[in-house]
Structures are given as C-alpha cells and as structure tokens.
Design a protein around this nucleic acid. Structure first.
Lengths: 237, 237
DNA sequence: TGCGTTCGTTAGAAGTTGTAACGCACGCCT
DNA sequence: AGGCGTGCGTTACAACTTCTAACGAACGCA
C-alpha cells in the first residue's frame, strides 16, 4: 500500500492543496531542496550542482535527499521544468497585460539577465542523456502561443498588403505546410515566420551576451538586442 | 635544470619541429590523449569527459595523464583552443577561396553540424570558472576579420547609397564609436553591424537546432537558416 | 494506543579528480 | 661506451562525488 487508495475523508481530492501532514512536509522539503539547488545553479551553473553540498547546507546527511529526488538527474529535470514555467508565467503575465512583441522581448531579456544560469538551463548546451518530458514541451508551446498572438497582432490586416508586389518568402511558404508546432493557433504564415525569427535572433544575442562572448568588445549588447528587436518589429522578411 | 638552457647543437632552434626524442614522444602522446578526448566529447559532450576513461582506453593508469595535462580543465581548455582554431581555419580557407558571406555561412553551418558538441564547446554554456586565455581571443579575432571583409565586400560603394533617405541605424552609429573589437579593419559601420548580426542570427538558429529545440516542430531548420542568411545578404538594417 | 509508513541515519560500493612516493628506463653528455 | 639525471609510469592514497542497502526512530492514521 504505497499509494493511499482513495484519500478517504480529508480533502477535495483533486486539488493540489496539501492533504496529509506527511505530504505537506514532503512538499516543503522538496521546495527547500530546490531553493538550495537554485542558489548553487545561480552561483556556479548546473554542472556544479551537488546533492551532497545541498544536504550539508540543509544540515542533513547526503542520502537523505534521495527520499525526495531519485537522483541528480531528476532534480535537474525539475529545475528545468521550473525554469520553463517561470519564463512561461512571465511571458503570459506580460501578454495578459497587453504587451506587444517589444514588450515580450523586454520580458525575455529581463528574465534572462536576472539569472543567466537559469537561461542556460533551458537554452544552453543540452545535457547528454536528457530528454524533455512531455510536460516541458507543453510549457514551451504555451510560450509559443503568446508569442504567436503578439506576432499576429503585428501583421497587417489580411488582404491589405502594404506592398502589393512584396515577394512571397519561401520559408514562410514552407511554414504554411509545416505549422503543426503552432497547434491550432490561427496565425498567418508571416506571423509564424516572425515568431521563429524573434526566438532565434533574440536568443542569438542573449546567449552570446550571457556567455560573455561580447565581453571586451566595447559595444553595448543591450543596444544590439534593441536593434534586432526594432528590425523584428518594423520589417517584414 | 628543468629547461635545456640553449638547445646547444641539434636543431634550428626556432622551428617548432620536434627537437629531442623526448619532446616528440611527449607531443605524440598529448595528441593521442586529445584524440581520445575528442571521441568522448563527440559522443557525450564535454561534461562527460573523463581522464580515467581516456587512460583506460589508452591502456595506461589514471595518473599517467597528469604528466601531459595539469588536469581536466587544462585538457578542456586545449580542446576549446583546437576547436576555435579548426573553425578559424575552415573560415579562412573559404575566405581565401573567395567565398562571400553566404559561403562563410555555409562553412559555419557545415562545421557545426559535423560535430555539434564541438560547436557547443565554443558557443555553448560557459564552464563556471573558465576564462579564455589570450590566444583564444586572438583566434576569435581572426574569424571576425574574415567575416568583416566579407561584409565589407557586400556593402554598396561608399557615397552611393541605394536609398538616399535611408534612415541611419542608431546601433550602427553606436558601433562607429565602439569599433575597437574590429581591430584596424577598415570596415564601414554598416559592415560592422552586418557582421554582428551575421554572428548572432546564425548562432541563434544553429544553437537551437543543435540543442534539439526544433525537434518535433516539423519545419526544416536548414530552411530557416537559409532564410536568415538570405535576409542578411539582401537587406540592410 | 498500537502498527505501519516514512524518514534520517550510518556503512559501503563504485566512480571521479588529483597528489605523493617510488622504480625503471630512456637519452643526453662526457 | 658508460654513468647519471630527467622524465615517465606505476601503485597507494586522499577527498570528493552519486547512489544503494540496512537499520532505528519518529510520526500519523486508524
């Protein structure tokens, strides 16, 4: 009987609210472990994350943590999931406040600069054996949905092309035939294209900046980010 | 007398060609170690690199490798240096063959796809305590020089602007005042800007593709890369 | 008030990096 | 050709790491 069979009397049963004291305690300890883990990640990156060090900081013995996480990999997976959720929440909150594409870009940049290691946890070098669980791809699609909406709002009204002779972009046409990743979002292919370039271009600037590749080059990475953003908002390519 | 005082009789003295048998042997073993290291990096990434595993594969005992590399960090630093040099050589060879910006982009993409882990060794998540030695920033500038030349060749002749009323781009103006990183390369500020966006945009696409973030999205990452390249070559922003 | 689940402990296995001390053999120099 | 010193490879060990196993104690549900 490792699993309580029906949660007989106490709670609603479906809510995530703490049911038994044991579960509450367990959830709290898991949270505390992750807090210490985030501190380590913020200071030295995910590769320096040590379960033993966390245990020492918490004043417990090493193997105690294995009651709460199956191992280092599961803890890191959880951190990645939380990072995705944090980003998705930030983006969604901005979108709900009516932020346009530039607003979303600002949210992304602020979120990345707030904790570069957290950004690299998501968008950095992938861990060798790691494969994203289903849940994470779902969160990723949440972010993409908000991005697609912002991009759609930026497109000129259908049928009212600014330049009648504007040549069709081959890649946008390709996207029209491969838009499964957009789910059922009704974004025009130009918006799909813009969302993708929003992602790749801003990630290009951000990741190189956060990795320090611009250090000592003299120019202001923030201005490069802003220039790329301006180009994304103003142009159509 | 750890250092031979004057290399008395044997060789030219300045050439890097193997001098003593000891040095030749040492260089050969170092090379062999790095070959096994590259194999490990290609299979599981830099984080999985193990000196012990290399020693086992070579049929020697673990600590033997410490005669050749001060430790794991020095070996990785050497691998990073070799990776930079490999990329710089590939780019320079193409540039010497008269490749234009699109040609350089193809070289970059092919080089990255040939060994994704090697790409991440350079442009991926930075290792916590690592700081690039002087030599590496030099190699990085070699690459940038070829890139700047290709970008300069793409600019319209000075004073013959295509669109007389084309608005000055603020970031290009900013770069005009912060062009130390270009060394003494006589690239116009528009070329500086284009080189930077070439770098960030293509890295944005490549790194996300190599990290598998496009997996399952359905579209062809190569076409996105090509579309970004087309935009870089055709437009001015 | 029991009794069972879960927790934290210590002990230990199998790894890792890296240091220390010890021979042996290679090669430089006389 | 011979001796001697340098460098190489070895084993032994220390200090880590993740993670498993077995045990005792405390907690909470009935």
């Amino acid at each position: 009987m490792a699993e309580p069979k029906a949660k007989t009397g106490s709670k609603t049963g479906a809510a995530t609210g703490a049911a038994t004291p044991r579960e509450r305690y367990r959830a709290q300890v898991r949270t505390e472990i992750k807090e210490h883990a985030w501190k380590q990640v913020a200071e030295a990156g995910a590769s320096a994350l040590s379960l033993n060090a966390i245990a020492k900081q918490m004043g417990v013995s090493g193997p105690a943590l294995y009651r709460y996480f199956a191992g280092r990999d599961e803890l890191i997976t959880e951190l990645i999931r939380d990072a995705y959720r944090s980003l998705a929440d930030a983006v969604h909150a901005a979108a709900a406040d009516g932020a346009d594409l530039a607003g979303l870009a600002h949210v992304l940049r602020d979120w990345a600069l707030a904790d570069p290691h957290r950004y690299f946890l998501i968008y950095g070098t992938p861990v060798p054996g790691y494969h994203a669980p289903e849940e994470i791809t779902g969160i990723s699609q949440e972010i993409m949905a908000d991005l697609l909406t912002a991009c759609t709002n930026l497109e000129p009204a259908a049928g009212k092309a600014l330049e009648p002779d504007a040549p069709a972009i081959p890649f946008a046409a390709h996207l029209e035939g491969h838009r499964d990743w957009a789910g059922d979002h009704p974004a025009p292919s130009a918006a799909l294209h813009r969302a993708l370039t929003f992602w790749t271009r801003l990630h290009g600037v951000l990741s190189l900046e956060l990795a320090g590749h611009f250090a000592g080059m003299g120019f202001d990475p923030g201005r490069l980010f802003a220039a790329e953003l301006d180009d994304l908002v103003a142009r159509r390519g």
